[in-house]
Simulated assay, not measured.
Amino acid sequence: MTSRVTLITPATNPSLRQARFDDGATSLDNTGALHARAAAGSLPSAARLVTSPSARCRETAAALGLAVKASGAGPAGLDAGRWRGRALDEVGRAEPEALGEWLADPSSAPHGGESVKELCERVARWLDAVAQSDGRTLAVVEPDVVRAAVVHVLGAPLASFWRADVLPLTATELSGRAGRWNVRLGHPLRPQES
């Protein structure tokens, strides 16, 4: 049995443009919504559709024309604790040691939320469960979920998490069977040709 998972990153929103820790409630900006609508119909059919619970992921799925049911909850992005909604440079000025520790140590969570290690473990459990299903899963998920999935499927060290750039509105495809995954990284979603 071959399992296929296509991870779609959300279109842009103000948090992304301002380098903020997303608060989960910030909607897509006009440009992001326009690009997502233009790419509607560019994805393969799937047996399952899921989305991270953030507004930007749900709105991207809707703009892409994906009818995700209420039961289609995918993994949430990293819980940034008290840093949620704050700009990265603001956190860097206010808590430089804590930010440095968090970026250097995957098991650190000085913000009171979730560590990168915990996120990677949670995403690995989700991905391993999805691997038991035949057919394709389309998942509109946060960029950090994509990073965690790539770290898992490649068996990469947790320190490599921050070395993967994940662009908005791209697809990362995973396919696997018998406990082995292959990965096709971040190709952009293209508007449908008329």
Rank of each mutant, 00 (worst) to 15 (best):
T2P: 10
T2S: 08
S3F: 09
L7T: 02
I8M: 07
T12L: 05
N13D: 12
L16M: 13
L16E: 07
Q18Y: 10
R20Y: 11
F21S: 02
G24T: 01
A25M: 05
S27N: 05
D29F: 12
T31G: 14
G32T: 03
G32N: 08
L34R: 15
A38M: 06
L43Q: 01
S45P: 06
A46D: 03
R48E: 03
C57M: 09
R58F: 09
A61F: 04
G65A: 04
A67I: 01
G74A: 09
G77I: 11
L78F: 09
G81Q: 03
R84C: 13
R84T: 15
G85T: 00
E90H: 11
E90N: 03
V91T: 01
V91C: 01
G92W: 05
E95T: 02
P96L: 00
E101P: 00
W102Y: 14
W102G: 04
W102M: 13
P106T: 09
S107A: 15
S108M: 08
G112N: 00
E114K: 15
E114N: 14
S115E: 08
E118R: 15
R122H: 06
A129N: 09
A129L: 10
A129H: 09
Q132D: 02
G135R: 03
R136V: 07
L138D: 05
E142F: 13
P143K: 13
V146H: 06
V146Q: 03
H152G: 07
G155M: 04
A156Q: 02
P157D: 09
L158R: 11
L158F: 14
A159T: 14
L167S: 14
L169T: 09
A171W: 07
A171R: 04
T172C: 05
E173A: 13
R180K: 15
N182D: 13
V183P: 08
R184N: 06
L185A: 13
P188Q: 01
L189F: 10
Q192R: 15
E193M: 12
E193S: 15
